[in-house]
């Protein structure tokens, strides 16, 4: 009975360790009127400087979650790094965390016992890609860290492309798993369709975007590769806000009209 009243989102699968700790206080731009308190920092950078709002679990949609993207960009709006984006998403939380710098937005005052402020905002910077994810809406620093990390995964999926060869292309398992059952190439061992709330969705979403980028944003070409009708693939692309925005942003850059 006692257990059942816990809020389920408070359980974390893993303890995250090995954080690289910043050894100096965070400097907050002097343009902020009261530099001792945290204000969410939202940067607009080049073509990819859009602000996404990713619903993370229950709370994410309840209290608006914001984070900024700050990444070096090559011409087509995706991040170019040595590793494929898939490699990052396959990492465990701990491995991914090791590639990140974590900082908090806490004032540089004495802190500790002196202070009672729920300023437990967390900012993660993924060093290899420069992608930044942050979380402020959770009530503990630990939970914000977990939220920021899952947001980082979504951002990596959206921003880091893997090259694919269209001639020899077969969709990877993780992509098949997010397709609706009516796809003709989907085999029954894929199990039921995985939706955006499943942590595995990011991997599938990434593979789907890889394909869409390879076919220059054409939904009908991508649909053929996936054994779906154009309409069915459009519905999938529109079913998740992040996916929709990423696709439409790319289509816009190619001069194709957005999906609605």
């Amino acid at each position: 009975m006692v257990r059942s009243v816990f809020k389920s989102f408070l359980y974390l699968p893993k303890t995250i360790t090995n954080i690289s700790i910043l050894t100096h206080p965070i400097s907050i731009p002097s343009t902020y009127p009261t530099p001792r308190i945290y204000r969410p920092v939202v940067k607009k950078i080049q073509q990819i400087g859009s602000l996404f709002s990713v619903p993370v679990g229950e709370l994410g949609s309840l209290f608006s979650a914001k984070y900024s993207i700050n990444a070096s960009s090559n011409g087509n709006g995706s991040v170019d790094t040595g590793l494929g984006g898939r490699d990052y998403l396959l990492m465990s939380d701990e491995e991914l965390m090791r590639q990140c710098e974590m900082s908090t937005f806490k004032a540089s005052g004495p802190g500790g016992q002196h202070r009672n402020k729920r300023e437990s905002a967390v900012r993660l910077k993924h060093n290899p890609t420069g992608i930044v994810a942050q979380a402020v809406e959770d009530r503990s620093q630990h939970m914000n860290r977990a939220s920021a990390l899952s947001r980082l995964r979504v951002l990596l999926a959206l921003k880091v492309r893997n090259n694919i060869d269209l001639d020899t292309y077969t969709p990877p398992q993780e992509l098949l798993q997010i397709l609706p059952a009516k796809s003709t190439i989907r085999v029954s061992k894929c199990g039921p369709q995985i939706g955006p709330n499943n942590p595995k969705f990011a991997l599938g979403m990434q593979a789907l975007l890889d394909l869409l980028f390879a076919v220059e944003g054409s939904v009908s070409d991508a649909a053929k590769k996936l054994g779906l009708s154009t309409g069915a693939l459009s519905r999938l692309l529109l079913s998740d806000d992040n996916l929709r925005m990423a696709v439409n942003e790319f289509r816009k850059s190619k001069g194709i009209k957005p999906l609605k």
């Binding site: 408070l10 009672n116 503990s140």
Partner: peptide
């Protein structure tokens, strides 16, 4: 809310701090 826990607190008990996590 502290780490992944929700701890009961009341007057007379220190509220655990984020640093201590």
């Amino acid at each position: 809310h502290w780490r992944d826990l929700v701890l009961s607190v009341q007057e007379g008990v220190l509220i655990p701090r984020p640093e201590t996590e």
